[in-house]
Amino acid sequence: MQNDIWSEEFGAAADEPIVLIMGSMSQGILWPDEFVGRLAAGGRRVIRYDHRDTGRSRTVDFEQEPYTWNDIKDDVLRVMDRHGLESAHLVCHSAGGLLGQMIAVERPERVRTLTVIGSSPLGEREGMVLMRALMGRPQPEGSLPEPTPEFVAHYRGLMAAPPPAGRRERIEAMIAEQRVLHGTALPFDEDAARRLQERVYDRARDLDAVTNHRLAAMAAPDFEPMGVLPQVKAPTLVIEGTHEPAKPGHGAIIAERIPGARLMMVEGLGHTLPPDVHEELARAILTHTAAPH
C-alpha cells in the first residue's frame, strides 16, 4: 500500500526530519498548517500524511482487504522509506502515539527521538476504559484514568442518536466532537473549527472508511503487551494538556515507564492542537529534536 498513502513535506531536505503521526481515524491535516510551519521555520524537514482509509489515502472494502493496526504502524515506515529516511524524529498525537511507541520498541534504529502528545501507554487497553465508562461500569483496580464526564456524555449521546446525514449534518457533528475534544479551558473558535472540518469532509475519498480503523483494532488487537515501554531507547518527550478530556493522566504513566522520558504539561490544552499552544509546543519539539542527542 506504499504508493497509496498520501503525504507531503515542508522545509529543507537537509534539515532534521520529523514525521507527524496523527491519531486513529484522523487525516494528516489535523496537524495544523501554522504549527507545521513553525517546525519547518525552526529548521526541520516536516512530513505529514493521511492514514490509510482517511483523507486522500486509499480506502478499501475491509471485508475484502482486512488489515490490522500493525499494518497501520508499518505505513509509517513506508512513508519514511518513500521520503528516503532511514530514521526520523516521530511526533505523534493520540493513537498515533501508540504507533510511535510500537515503532520505538520494534525498530529503534529508525527513531531519532519520540514525542507523544495526548496519548496512552502502549500495552494498555484504553479503549476498554472508554467502553466501561460509556456503559457506566466500574473500572477495575489499576485501570487507566477514564475520560472526563463531558467526554463520556458526548459519546453516550452519539450512541443513542441516529447518525448524521448529508454534508451539513456531518460537519456540524464533527464540530461538536471537536468542541468536546478541545476541552474547557481555552476559547473555542467555532469559525476555525468549521473551516477545518469542511476541509476534512471535502478532501476525504470516503469519509465513512475511517471506521475501518476500529475494525482493524477488533480484528487483530496486535498492540504490544504491557511491560515493553522500558525497552524504548529513543529520547522521549511526553506532552499532555491540563484539560485533556480523553486520556487524562495517561501521559504521566508513559513518562514513568520510558527510561529518561520527560513529561511536559501544557496549561489549558485539551485533546486538540489549537493556535493558543502552537508556539509552546513547537518550541518544545524543536528543542527535543535538535541534533545531536
Rank of each mutant, 00 (worst) to 15 (best):
P225I: 07
S24N: 10
R125N: 13
G157W: 01
I21D: 03
F10N: 10
R194A: 09
V36L: 03
E150G: 12
I239K: 05
P274W: 03
R214K: 14
A209D: 05
A160P: 03
V200G: 02
R203N: 14
D61L: 09
M135H: 14
R168Q: 15
R56P: 02
G96L: 01
A41W: 08
R78W: 08
H288K: 06
I18G: 04
Y155Q: 10
R203G: 13
I254W: 00
R199T: 12
H293Y: 11
D61Q: 09
A255K: 01
M80R: 02
T242V: 10
D208R: 15
K73M: 14
A133C: 06
C92G: 00
A41M: 09
V91W: 02
Y49A: 06
W6E: 04
P164T: 14
A261V: 00
R78V: 11
S24W: 06
D208N: 13
P145E: 02
A220K: 15
L39F: 05
N70Q: 15
S120V: 11
V180W: 00
V105T: 00
E124M: 13
R199P: 06
R199Q: 11
L134P: 01
R199I: 10
D189C: 04
R262H: 08
H293S: 13
P163C: 14
P140Y: 08
S119V: 04
F223H: 11
A176R: 07
R132I: 06
G260C: 05
V111N: 02
I18H: 03
Y201G: 08
R107G: 08
R48I: 00
A161D: 09
D81S: 10
L90S: 03
H154V: 11
S24P: 04
H93G: 06
L273Y: 05
A165G: 14
R262D: 07
M131F: 14
A234R: 00
W69S: 09
A41N: 11
R132V: 07
